[in-house]
Design a protein around this nucleic acid. Sequence first.
DNA 1: TAATGTAGGCACTTTTAAGTAACAATTACG
DNA 2: CGTAATTGTTACTTAAAAGTGCCTACATTA
Lengths: 118, 118
Amino acid sequence: MKKYNIPVEAALEVIGGKWKVVILCHLIKDRRRTGELKRLMPGITQKMLTQQLRELEDDGVILREVYNQVPPRVEYSLTDYGWSLKGILDSLCAWGEQHIEKTYPNKEDVLVQTEELV
Amino acid sequence: MKKYNIPVEAALEVIGGKWKVVILCHLIKDRRRTGELKRLMPGITQKMLTQQLRELEDDGVILREVYNQVPPRVEYSLTDYGWSLKGILDSLCAWGEQHIEKTYPNKEDVLVQTEELV
DNA sequence: TAATGTAGGCACTTTTAAGTAACAATTACG
DNA sequence: CGTAATTGTTACTTAAAAGTGCCTACATTA
């Protein structure tokens, strides 16, 4: 069984890694289907997306809903437990914004325009 | 120059990875010297510790102070900018605690007793 | 004189994370 | 009948993160 030295490590195991926080930040705004998430995250590969979504699902923070259609339609959303991360995610997003502003004079240089993709 | 799709990625670049949040959680309680941090984080190697501390220093969230002594004495502490992460770190720690409680019936099984090390 | 304690560097190896590419399933549509 | 659309799997490869072992410096202390 996994051992932690301090409790925060347990949180990192759930939302750690390169993609999970980003995925959750999108799902906090809206439920999304797979293809939408892929478009919102131009860098991610199909494999990584599926893998991260599975792990988040296993940890109980997101819900995967399959609609019986062809072509298939799968939607992801936060569970109640996932919503308990809202405070953290909001703070992280806000901190990231002001960090960019602090670090780069004009954030247009570092921020890819994604709004259009939403 | 690094490009982000959403601002939160900038935050992850500063506090992402396996160790940085843990380091910051310790420094938020107290300033620490290198050896203390190493004892508080039994899993970390000297190399990783130094490396992560350097990066945190470069990002302006921690301060490295060298005392001119032999054997050397180096102390790390949060900068003002580092303190702006307090909300996030506190929330993460709290979430980790309740996640352990939710996930494991008795947390003694997963939490290594570190209190004695402090 | 030789060992101790502290912080850290460096070269190298291993492990883990992430990326690539090809393929499956299914039905509507032209 | 062949193709597009959507989600996902699998085997393989590459890149990044982390770990290992050995080395330095130097005043103090035994």
